[in-house]
């Protein structure tokens, strides 16, 4: 019973915060509702027994990706009037998108009901006596090793690409030379003098 209650709690919160993500006027609030949706989705993952995926969802999406979203959105100075001005032009596109997504959901539900793919047979993918992480690791690092490495490579290329694209060499920047800072000693920088009365100090 507790599982059922938890499921409905998480499910309702995911849907509600998803809706509020697109409905709220303040973009920072939108990002926060998105985070709420991620969080509750992680709760749903825990309920179906995929705790590793749930934790990854929180660590990667909530802990890193959404922080960057929030960063960008907080820095933006958004003009709401301008944001809404394109609405009249784009609403047919939006309706089309809703129709496509809605019909996809109907088709998916129908396929599930018809049982053609026999998804129910895959309901318990984790082998007995093995934790979630071990099962996933055994698959990723043996059977799907090349796919996994390929995905890693794609991410690496994307990262290098992003760095190269945004990097610009700026002139006139005085960087820190840490080795020189560490080598500097008091006797290089300080000179103690004992001037006599009535005399100045030449430095």
């Amino acid at each position: 019973m507790i599982q059922t209650l938890a499921f409905y709690l998480f499910a309702i919160l995911v849907v509600a915060s998803g809706a509020l993500t697109i409905l709220s006027r303040n973009p920072v609030h939108s990002v926060l509702w998105l985070i709420m949706a991620f969080f509750n989705a992680a709760g749903l993952m825990v309920l179906v027994g995929a705790e590793f995926i749930a934790m990854l969802l929180v660590i990667v999406y909530v802990g890193a990706v959404a922080v960057l979203f929030l960063f960008v959105v907080m820095m933006l100075d958004i003009d709401f009037a301008e944001l809404r001005s394109g609405f009249a032009r784009y609403w047919p596109f939006g309706v089309a998108l809703v129709l496509v997504l809605g019909s996809e959901m109907v088709i998916a539900g129908g396929a599930w009901e018809a049982g053609g793919l026999q998804l129910a047979r895959r309901a318990a993918p984790t082998p007995a006596g093995m934790s979630n992480i071990q099962a996933l690791g055994a698959l990723i690092y043996s059977r799907y090793l090349y796919v996994f490495e390929g995905a890693g490579l794609v991410l690496l290329v994307a990262m290098i690409g992003a760095i190269v694209l945004t990097h610009r060499a700026r002139g006139g920047v005085r960087g820190q030379k840490v080795a020189r800072q560490n080598q500097r000693r008091p006797q290089d920088a300080i000179k103690l003098v004992d001037p006599a009365v009535g005399q100045g100090v030449s430095l």
Binding site: I35, E51, F52, M55, V58, I59, G63, L70, N132, I133
Partner: peptide, 22 residues
């Protein structure tokens, strides 16, 4: 006593930044 205990801690500690940023 969950089998992703350490990941849970990593996940929760990554949430700590939100309090400060907000």
């Amino acid at each position: 006593d969950i089998n992703v205990g350490l990941l849970y801690i990593l996940a929760v500690s990554s949430l700590g930044v939100y309090g400060v940023v907000l």
